[in-house]
């Protein structure tokens, strides 16, 4: 499927990646080429085939309900580019 500029703009927006207006055309071509490449999957008859959810033949392991972590605000916050006290900070969001 060939993507147009508007579609690329929408994808970039969903992925939260700023794309300059003049880059949109080039990206549309690149992404369309990749889509054309993967679209050969359309040839395969997959009627009734279970989509793979996990390649590992095992069941979901469960942990016990015990507090084993936390009280590590220093480790959680140490790499934060911005913050105050014990908080992370971001530009103000208006709900």
């Amino acid at each position: 499927m060939a993507l147009d500029k508007a579609a690329v703009r929408k994808i970039a927006r969903l992925a939260r990646i700023r794309v300059a207006e003049e880059e949109l055309d080039g990206l549309a071509v690149e992404l369309s080429n990749i889509l054309t490449f993967v679209e050969q999957l359309g040839e395969v008859d997959t009627a009734g085939v279970e989509p793979m959810t996990s390649v590992v033949a095992m069941t979901l392991p469960r942990r016990a309900d015990a507090v084993t972590d936390g009280n590590t605000a220093d480790k959680v916050l140490v790499n934060a580019p911005e913050g105050t006290g014990n908080f992370f900070a971001v530009p103000k969001v208006v709900e």
């Binding site: 942990r63 015990a66 972590d69 936390g70 959680v76 014990n86």
Partner: peptide, 25 residues
């Protein structure tokens, strides 16, 4: 109602100091 979170071992108790009941997960 549980002691620890759904996918990490951090506590669920109400009213703790900010970002103290947070695991790296």
């Amino acid at each position: 109602t549980s002691q620890a979170k759904l996918f990490s071992g951090a506590a669920t108790a109400f009213g703790a100091e900010p970002n103290t009941q947070v695991s790296l997960v």
